[in-house]
Amino acid sequence: MTNSPSSESTDPQTPAVVGQILTGEAFVVTREDVERFESGTWVDRAYPEGDIPEFPEDLVEGFHLLSLVDPVLQFALGDSRGGMWGLNYGLDKVRFVSQVHIGDRVVPTFETLAVEPKDGGFKVLRRCTFTVEGGERPAMVADWWGYQLPRGVVEKSRRP
């Protein structure tokens, strides 16, 4: 089942969303995006002489793609997050299956695999798949846990 952001439940972190697939808008990584990523993650400092000759100049790093999982999901969810907010809880498995090059259109999908109650919120496991438009195999597949909490829960716990 594929849902657009507007048709997903008003509380996307409930157990009822297990099995649902959300397809986000296709996106493109630009040369400027790659340069900012390399600067922000110190890749440019780690490899001051540049990459090895066999590394294609227009290849998007796997960790760059992985860093886009959270914002691309937020864009896909839009206003359907309801009264929840989330934290990164961790990754179970990440695979970089095929290459993404600067300028490729990448289609993201997010399948909810599990929702587990935790301390007044939910742990949510999503399979995040990025596929180059027209590609036969995914470029990246990541099983990613988020920890979702109702807004105001943390603030209330901090009050004396």
Rank of each mutant, 00 (worst) to 15 (best):
R159V: 12
T129H: 08
H101M: 08
D70F: 12
R126N: 03
V106F: 04
T10M: 01
D44G: 01
Q148N: 05
R127F: 05
L77P: 05
F27K: 07
T41K: 05
S9Y: 01
K93H: 12
E32H: 09
V106A: 06
W145Q: 02
I52W: 05
V29M: 04
G120T: 11
D79H: 03
V106L: 05
T41E: 04
A46F: 11
R95D: 09
I21V: 15
D92E: 15
S157V: 06
A139Q: 00
A76G: 04
V28T: 15
E54F: 08
A16V: 07
C128M: 06
V132G: 00
R45A: 08
L91N: 08
F130G: 05
W144K: 01
R158K: 13
F75N: 10
T23W: 05
V107M: 07
C128V: 14
V154W: 08
V132E: 04
V100S: 01
L68E: 02
V18K: 10
L91V: 13
P12G: 07
E25F: 00
S80M: 07
E35S: 10
M84H: 07
P71G: 03
E136V: 11
M84N: 06
E133W: 10
G135M: 05
G62R: 08
V28K: 08
F110M: 09
G82M: 08
V115G: 00
H101N: 12
T129D: 08
T10D: 05
G83T: 15
A26P: 14
R31F: 01
P108D: 09
V107W: 08
G19Q: 08
E57R: 14
G24F: 03
E25R: 12
V100G: 00
R137A: 12
P150V: 11
G134D: 02
P117G: 06
V94T: 14
R81C: 11
I102R: 02
L73Y: 09
K156R: 15
E133R: 12
P160A: 13
R81V: 15
P12Y: 06
A142V: 07
G50E: 03
Q148I: 02
L65Y: 01
G62I: 10
A114M: 04
S7L: 07
S6W: 03
S7V: 14
E54V: 13
V154H: 09
V97Q: 11
G50D: 04
V94L: 11
E38Q: 14
P150Q: 10
D119M: 11
L73C: 09
F55A: 04
L87K: 01
T109N: 09
G90S: 03
I52C: 06
P53N: 07
G121R: 01
C128R: 01
R31K: 13
L91K: 00
A139D: 02
G24A: 04
W85V: 15
R95E: 13
E38T: 07
